[in-house]
């Protein structure tokens, strides 16, 4: 049997996040929770791989408080086969370094696998670091920002990675981790039977001890990141637009490039 592991995160359902001015962290109370929107594409792709391969198990994993179980049940209702909740007081205040370490410990506990999938980033933290982090801890390749999968079978894949200026075609052999974009697929609607089965599913809770995680690498003490200040980044500056008739634009562009020593 093949195995795909999908990592998801429960996030507050709002773009209007309030920041606690003293701790520089988000205030989560009273905000409804959803699955991180990007992770919906990771779940969908995991299920599609299973549908393509047959005889494949899709395991969905999240680290979070006990309430994060709701997110796992939603993933099950969409077609994931089983869910695991990583929950322990010791995990609290983990940064991306500690979180990816904890998730990689879970992968080791789950056993063999073919592909790991995460969304491109979480809508609350926006770091995009956890996916590649997991891959580093496991010492496997990671391919980020996947917009299209040309081919995928156990041990091999050919994918398209989005870049600001186009895309790369990447081939990979062996196990690997991918982080996916919304261009990759269209998440399905849950089925009635899936929802009913998900309500009844048993979801094990794995603790730090069960994961045999190194206490020095988890939680606040295991997290090297310190938030110094939270601020809105200045918007990206737009490029220049060369306008006019054909010849004018070509000359304009040529002049711009040569003036800026880009030729």
């Amino acid at each position: 049997m093949n195995r795909v592991i999908v990592f998801i995160k429960q996030v507050p359902d709002t773009a209007e996040l309030k920041i606690d001015p003293t701790t520089n962290t988000m205030i989560r109370e009273g905000v409804p929770s959803i699955i991180n929107p990007f992770d919906m594409y990771a779940i969908e792709e995991g299920i599609r791989i299973k549908e393509k391969w047959g005889d494949t198990e899709v395991v969905v994993v999240t680290m979070g408080p006990p309430q994060a179980e709701t997110a796992l049940r939603e993933a099950l209702s969409l077609g994931c086969d089983r869910a695991i909740l990583l929950s322990d007081k010791k995990f609290a205040a983990s940064d991306t370094y500690a979180t990816s370490y904890i998730l990689s410990c879970a992968v080791k506990k789950i056993g063999d696998y073919d592909v790991l999938i995460t969304g491109k980033q979480a809508s609350d933290g926006d770091t995009a670091q956890v996916g590649p982090g997991i891959a580093s801890w496991l010492n496997i390749p990671s391919i980020t920002y996947i917009r299209k999968i040309d081919e995928i079978r156990a041990g091999y894949a050919k994918v398209e990675r989005m870049r600001n200026d186009g895309f790369d075609i990447i081939e990979v052999t062996g196990k690997f981790l991918m982080t996916v974009l919304k261009e990759l697929n269209e998440p399905r609607i849950p089925s009635f039977r899936g929802k009913m089965a998900a309500k009844k599913a048993e979801i094990p809770i794995w603790s730090a001890e069960y994961l045999e995680a190194d206490d020095g690498k988890i939680g606040f003490l295991g997290s090297p990141t310190r938030v110094v200040r939270a601020f809105s980044p200045p918007p990206k500056k737009g490029g220049i637009k060369v306008e006019g008739e054909d010849e004018e634009t070509v000359n304009g562009l040529y002049n711009f490039l040569s003036e800026n020593k880009m030729l």
């Binding site: 399905r188 609607i189 849950p190 089925s191 009635f192 039977r193 899936g194």
Partner: peptide
């Protein structure tokens, strides 16, 4: 197709 996959025709 979506209605079918969601089990609604089974109702």
């Amino acid at each position: 197709k979506i209605l079918g996959n969601s089990d609604l025709y089974r109702v």
